[in-house]
């Protein structure tokens, strides 16, 4: 099927089978490397993108479900974004593979007022895994960005 998806403010066209996952369209048809495949079961969050400002797992989201929505990947976030800058200031990363997903998740939490304290931030990050174990600094970063 022919898909037209809105991604980072532009329209991406892709001729794909309906069961193609959004992450594959973003990586292969839109050339974006921010959404990444790690677990393949929607559990770890490295494939996180925002769909109408809400984080979703692009690795298990059939691409046609994204029609009519606005998709934002890390590439669509300006570098002067408060959450991005707080991640940088707190050095809240090691290998970086999970970090775009963390930033997008953190951004949605901050925007919606779901980052009131560390407990709420942890709760919001529960589905974003970081094997390097940067959680404490990531929580610091989001906590500061929320203020």
């Amino acid at each position: 099927m022919n898909l037209a998806l809105r991604v980072n403010g532009r329209t991406i066209h892709a001729d794909v089978e309906p069961e193609t996952m959004l992450v594959d369209v973003l990586r292969e048809h839109a050339g974006l490397t921010g959404p990444r495949v790690t677990c393949g079961v929607g559990l770890c969050g490295t494939c996180t993108v925002l769909m109408d400002e809400q984080p979703v797992s692009a690795c298990i989201l059939m691409a046609p479900l994204a029609q009519g929505t606005e998709i934002t990947t890390i590439e669509g976030i300006p570098e002067d974004d408060a959450v991005v800058r707080c991640f940088d200031r707190h050095h809240a990363f090691q290998c970086g593979f999970c970090i775009p997903g963390m930033v997008l998740t953190g951004r949605a939490m901050v925007a919606e007022g779901h980052a009131a304290d560390r407990e709420e931030i942890r709760e919001g990050l529960g589905g974003n895994l970081c094997r390097c174990g940067c959680y404490l600094k990531i929580i610091d970063a989001i906590e500061e960005a929320a203020q």
């Binding site: 969050g45 996180t48 809400q54 984080p55 979703v56 797992s57 989201l61 589905g127």
Partner: peptide, 9 residues
Amino acid sequence: VASPRVRNV
């Protein structure tokens, strides 16, 4: 259930 990301969908 799972994470906010899953619960959004």
